[in-house]
Each structure stands twice: as structure tokens, then as C-alpha cells.
Design a protein around this nucleic acid. Structure first.
Length: 276
DNA sequence: ATGGTCGTATGACGA
């Protein structure tokens, strides 16, 4: 068990990646950990219950794992070689879905290398007017409340929200707005919810280093979307002001989307400098 | 050609 570094944190690299099934992507995940030099990786859609999660091969590479999965759906994890402490399953006020209420595995948080980091899988929404769409908006509103409370308690907190937010915040974040007319991910309520989340005290720390248009993190498996460069920017690393000020670089590992057996999402990687 | 593909309780459904 490694210790969390003391305040005055060292530089580190963290990343977020919707891997779309740990079982289908285990070899790719291990290869990514081996080559990317990430210290902390937030993954989403592991699609596996805790007891089946392949912790051992990840541990062999020197990483600790905190995974939250209750079924073959959803599932989130944090993978860290700079310690994992203060593990939190879900966030206070996180909504449930349906009746009877279902608590889904969409959020896990921990302190890694002096940063409070969360792996989040925001509900997809399915379609406008679907109960799942309302759930998505409620989930995002609750998340904003949680972040506001965290930053009110400690305005200097090093907080990172990583994950698949299932929202393209601006028209630039999709390849063709006409293709998304009447669809989720681009609707005004979703974009307002995302803006409110930023308003709780967070910044997109990738965009300043990867200006658009044409910068995406997700490409549908269908219709040759990836080779046609027809994607969406829906995966984000959002940071509190104290952490955002330390970010020195960020990139999207588009290479990981290539070839047989790729996830439909690419990893998003952030470099954090030493705390001044 | 109004789909095309992946993933999951392999069977419809979710993304």
C-alpha cells in the first residue's frame, strides 16, 4: 500500500477513458497503462461486477484499483500508482433510476497523489422525453450541488471530475449539428446542466490545450465514423481552480481508437505540474 | 442501401 503524498503535491499524469467493457478491453487497458505513463486512470463502463474485476494483472503493473460495479452495466474504477485513499462509492445526493429505485454504478471517488479524483459515467439519456433523460438532468444537477459543497468546504481543494459526461457542450463538439437534430447530448437542457456543473467551480482543463473544431473523444462504431473523423467531444476532465492552475498539458489519445478491438472512446490525458 | 457495429444475462436491448 503506497501512501498519499503530502500537501505540496508532486507532478503527475491522470487520464479518463470509457473502455466499454473491461473483459473486451483488458489487453488494451494493460497496454495503455504500460505505455502511457499515467499515474491515475479513471475508467468507465467496465461492465462487470466487483468480484469479477481483473485486479491482479493491473496490480502486476504496479497499480492499485478501486472499482465499483454491481452488474454487467455501467461500472467505474480508479487505477492508481500514487495511492488510493478515502474511496467513495457514489456521491451524496446521487439520484436513483426507476421504480423500484435502482442505484447504478456511475461514480467512484478517491484521493490519489493529493488529488480528489472521480470517475463518472453520466446517464446517456437515451432520447428526449425518455425517463432516462430526466434522470440524466437530475444526476447532473445533483453532481453540481455536490461539487459546490465540496469546494465551499475547501476552496483550495484539488478536485478532478473525470468521465463520460454524454454531453457535447457546444456545436463545435460534434461533427455535424444537423445530424443531431432532436437528439440527446446536444439539447439545451443538457448543455445548461453542463454549464451549471462548470459554474459550481470547475474548468475544462483539456480544451485550452486542444482547441477545436474537429477535436473529439468518441466516434460511433457504425457508419465509418472514426475514419471519416465524424465524432463527438463528450469525455472530459474538469478541475477545480486550484488544480486547473497546475495543468501543463493535455491530449486525446486518438491512436487508441484505431484498429480491431478498440473502445468507441479515446483516452483523455492531463499533465499536472508540481504544486507551486 | 434510410443501414452499416459493438457490448451485454445469447437475446433483445443499450450505446
Amino acid at each position: 500500500m503506497s501512501a498519499t503524498p503530502p500537501p505540496g503535491s508532486p507532478p503527475l499524469r491522470f487520464a479518463t477513458w470509457n473502455i466499454n467493457s473491461i473483459r473486451a478491453r483488458q489487453d488494451r487497458l494493460l497496454a495503455f497503462l504500460a505505455r502511457s505513463d499515467v499515474d491515475v486512470l479513471a475508467i468507465q463502463e467496465t461492465k462487470i461486477p466487483n468480484e469479477k474485476f481483473p485486479t491482479a494483472p493491473i496490480a502486476d503493473l504496479g497499480f492499485e484499483v478501486a472499482h465499483h460495479g454491481v452488474s454487467q452495466w455501467n461500472g467505474v474504477a480508479l487505477i492508481s500508482r500514487v495511492g488510493i485513499e478515502n474511496i467513495r462509492i457514489g456521491f451524496p445526493g446521487m439520484p436513483t433510476f426507476g421504480q423500484p429505485p435502482l442505484t447504478e454504478a456511475r461514480a467512484i471517488g478517491a484521493t490519489c497523489g493529493g488529488i480528489d479524483i472521480w470517475s463518472l459515467y453520466v446517464p446517456n439519456g437515451r432520447s428526449l422525453g425518455d425517463p432516462h433523460y430526466d434522470y440524466k438532468l437530475e444526476w447532473l444537477a445533483a453532481l453540481a450541488w455536490f461539487v459546490a459543497a465540496e469546494l465551499t468546504a475547501d476552496p483550495a481543494k484539488q478536485l478532478a471530475l473525470c468521465g463520460d459526461f454524454n454531453i457535447a457542450p457546444t456545436d463545435e463538439d460534434v461533427w455535424d449539428m444537423a445530424a443531431f437534430e432532436g437528439d440527446t447530448h446536444v439539447s439545451e437542457p443538457e448543455r445548461t446542466a453542463f454549464a451549471n456543473l462548470l459554474g459550481s467551480g470547475l474548468q475544462d482543463v483539456v480544451r485550452p490545450h486542444q482547441p477545436g473544431p474537429g477535436v473529439y473523444t468518441y466516434w460511433d462504431y457504425q457508419r465509418l465514423r472514426f475514419p471519416r473523423r465524424e465524432g463527438m467531444r463528450i469525455d472530459f476532465a474538469l478541475a477545480s481552480a486550484a488544480l486547473a492552475g497546475r495543468v501543463t498539458a493535455a491530449r486525446i489519445d486518438r491512436e487508441e481508437r484505431k484498429g480491431k478491438g478498440a473502445s468507441d472512446h479515446a483516452p483523455v490525458i492531463v499533465d499536472v505540474g508540481e504544486q507551486p
